[in-house]
Simulated scan of single mutants.
Amino acid sequence: MTLADVATPALVLDSAVLERNCEAMAQRAARHGVALRPHLKTSKSAGVARLATRGQPGGVTVSTVAELDYFASQGFLDLTYAVGISAGKIEALDRIQRRYGAQITLLADQVEAVRAAAARADALGARFAMLIEIDTGGGRGGVAPSDPELLTIARAIQQSDAFTLLGVLTHAGHSYHAPGLEAIQRIAEDERAGAVRAAERLRGQGMEVSVVSVGSTPTAVYATRLDGVTEMRPGVYTFFDLDQQARGVCRMEDIALSVLATVIGHNPRSGRVLIDAGALALSKDRSGDEFRDDLGFGLVCPITGGAPWPGLRVADVHQEHGLLATDGAPQALFDALPIGSRVRILPHHACMTAAPYDRYHVVRGTDQRVNAVWGKARGWVEGA
């Protein structure tokens, strides 16, 4: 099978680029002396996970119950569920642990959440490891490293028979908005120092802390030191995307993921080419616009991949339609992309674009042969 045979829209994954990205991050982790626990919310795929964990202890990070169930079924049994726990999910997590013999580590930043989850776990006879989420500047969730609540949460975990305190976890998501290398490096140091400070406070109270976990792709790429940290959890680095390229975290040739689409029409009135990949196939995320103004809803490449065509972009999207526009003459665009021809679209945000699909069509370099089809998780619930 070749890309000409694949029903569109479809996800295309260049394994050569993927392998290079995974190896580069593994080398960064080794230079810093930390474990790499890749966040698999981007790919949601065991095929990707096997490359991302190669040479590593084997632990992974996930963000949905569906991902926990899927990855445990694929033999990944050391799983950090990096979303604050809610009591209503404990029963499903307990089933997954028991079914596969997995160890799921939970995350909390509220005493109330710890107590509610503990009560449910105790009723089931379930046992989990737990990390405390630390806010090192992102402002999404977590407690500040110096907040007295940190110790209160830790004691609530220790008082429960259901939970064992492992340590602390933070995510510098605000690094995605940092303007330039120096800003990313400052955030990376804040991330490291904040997590280490929180761990030291817990240890100062006689608590054992074996895990100090940090992670975001920009900070993992540009951190200058990670002393005191035990692991990092970047995710989108496996694929990269236009968002990361726009802020200088990767090069265009580091983007491993694209969406295969078919040209379905020419509109001479608007001067646009229609494709069968729209808002659902590409997503409406335009995060790269924060640093570039020429990306549209994605950049357009030949079916063989490689560099995007200069000036050609997805200018607009409807639910199942994408509209391509160019800075040049429309007729030249119509001639270059006849109806029935195929293109590949580089996405702004790989995580958002990949999420709805159920498989990857794996190619290598400019070769259009599909070497493998990799499945993936979808949705939010167990068994999805």
Results as ranks from 00 to 15, higher is better:
Gly204Asn: 11
Ala172Tyr: 04
Glu189Lys: 08
Ala195Glu: 03
Glu182Trp: 02
Val212Pro: 10
Ala178Gly: 13
His177Phe: 07
His174Val: 00
Arg186Pro: 03
Glu189Thr: 05
Arg201Gly: 10
Ser213His: 12
Phe163Tyr: 00
Tyr176Asp: 12
Ala172Glu: 11
Val214Phe: 14
Ser213Lys: 11
Ala178Tyr: 02
His177Thr: 06
His171Arg: 02
Ile184Glu: 05
Leu169Lys: 10
Asp190Ser: 15
Arg197Pro: 00
Ala188Glu: 03
Ser175Trp: 05
Ala193Glu: 10
Phe163Glu: 04
Ala172Gln: 11
Val168Met: 11
Met207Gly: 07
Glu182Lys: 07
Gln185Leu: 02
Ala188Ser: 11
Glu200Tyr: 02
Val214Met: 14
Ala162Ser: 15
Gly173Gln: 10
Glu189Val: 03
Gly204Met: 03
His174Ser: 06
Phe163Pro: 14
Val209Ile: 12
Asp190Gln: 12
His174Lys: 06
Ser175Glu: 05
His174Asp: 03
Gly173Phe: 14
Ala198Cys: 10
Ala178His: 06
Gly194Asn: 08
Arg192Asn: 12
Leu202Lys: 05
Arg201Ile: 01
Glu208Cys: 13
Gly206Trp: 08
Ala188Gly: 13
Gln158Asn: 13
Thr164Met: 02
Arg192His: 02
Val168Pro: 00
Ala193Asp: 15
Glu182Thr: 09
Ser213Tyr: 14
Thr170Gln: 09
Val168Thr: 09
Ser210Thr: 15
Glu182Cys: 03
Gly180Lys: 01
Gln159Asn: 15
Tyr176Cys: 02
Gly180Asp: 11
Ala195Val: 00
Leu169Gln: 06
Ala172Met: 06
Ala162Thr: 09
Thr170Leu: 08
His177Glu: 14
Leu165Trp: 04
Glu182Phe: 03
Ser213Trp: 15
Leu169Val: 07
Leu181His: 08
Val212Ile: 14
Arg192Trp: 00
Ile187Trp: 00
Ala162Asn: 08
Arg192Asp: 08
Gln159Trp: 00
Ala193Asn: 10
Ser160Val: 09
Glu208Ser: 15
Arg192Leu: 01
Glu189Gln: 15
Arg203Val: 09
Asp190Cys: 13
Ser213Asp: 14
Val196Ile: 01
Glu182Gly: 03
Ser175Arg: 03
Gly194Lys: 01
Ile157Gly: 15
Ser160Cys: 14
Ala193Met: 01
Leu165Phe: 05
Thr164Lys: 01
Ala195Leu: 04
Ala188Thr: 04
Ala195Gly: 10
Arg186Val: 10
Leu202Ile: 01
Arg192Pro: 02
Ile187Thr: 07
Asp161Arg: 07
Ile187Gly: 14
